[in-house]
């Protein structure tokens, strides 16, 4: 047996032990207070939710908003990151502004967004604002880190702009780009669901908040679990891709 498979096995065992331990603590604490639903009740609500067409509609709404926020965030973040990485003038003008804007708690902008982008548009914009920065920063740093000799090589073989982009720039920043994309998906979920907590007609954020105000804690926790599971799965998949690319 190789050390790697050994490591994988012990990792798996560790994860199972941790899950069992967490479930046990959850089970015990649910007995102590009625606001904490038992794991069994949560699981039941989790399964039943998927038979409810209204719930499925909420899942669809959130998934769609997250997907849109994710894609727009990557494209916009990638474009601005590229500009910052390639142009010293853009860095001088934009960098301080972007750093300051990244420091702003973006959710305070939500009431400003609402009248402009309406209920369904605002949560996408909020998702974009969250997903944007990790891509932007990673791309900008990645582009600046490209060894100058690669550009010299590109010039001596008379590579065109598109060839430079596809054959030098993109592969050279593949690792920071993937890291940015991986962070962007989790943050797109955060932005959209956070927006849904405040004001929306459909979506999982609304489900969570409504379940809370109705005291349906099993429903609330099961939906939160769904969100965590979805973001976690995509992150792990992207993380694996990141390691394969290395």
């Amino acid at each position: 047996m190789t050390t790697l498979t050994k490591l994988r096995q012990s990792q798996f065992v560790g994860a199972v032990v941790l899950a069992l331990l967490a479930s046990a603590i959850w089970q015990i604490s649910s007995g102590l207070s009625f606001v904490i639903p038992s794991p069994a009740a949560t699981a039941e609500a989790f399964v039943q939710n998927f038979a409810d067409p209204r719930y499925l509609r909420d899942v669809g709404e959130t998934a769609q908003a997250v997907a849109q926020a994710f894609i727009i965030g990557i494209l916009l973040g990638g474009a601005i990151g590229l500009l910052l990485g390639l142009s010293a003038a853009a860095r001088t003008w934009l960098e301080p502004l972007l750093i300051a804007f990244n420091g702003v708690p973006k959710i305070v902008l939500y009431p400003v967004l609402l009248p402009v982008f309406s209920l369904s548009g605002s949560k996408i914009v909020m998702g974009v604002l969250f997903a944007l920065f990790p891509v932007l920063i990673n791309v900008a740093v990645g582009v600046r880190g490209i060894p100058p000799v690669y550009w010299k090589l590109g010039r001596t073989v008379q590579a065109g702009k598109w060839q430079l982009f596809v054959h030098i720039l993109l592969p050279a920043i593949r690792l920071p780009l993937l890291t940015g994309v991986r962070l962007a998906i989790s943050l797109a979920v955060v932005g959209v669901v956070l927006a849904e907590f405040f004001a929306t007609r459909f979506g999982l954020g609304r489900v969570v908040l409504q379940a809370y105000s109705h005291g349906e804690y099993a429903q609330m926790v099961s939906t939160i679990l769904l969100l965590i599971l979805a973001a976690f799965t995509v992150s792990v998949l992207l993380w694996r891709l990141e390691r394969r690319v290395r």
């Binding site: 060894p147 100058p148 010299k152 001596t156 008379q158 590579a159 065109g160 060839q163 054959h167 050279a172």
Partner: peptide
Amino acid sequence: RDIGVVFQEDSTLPWRNVRENVEFAMQMA
């Protein structure tokens, strides 16, 4: 492209294997 240059710095592209690196200039051409 009729003027070939070999640089002092390491200019091999790490995401390409030896064959793909050697083919790079021809591919651009």
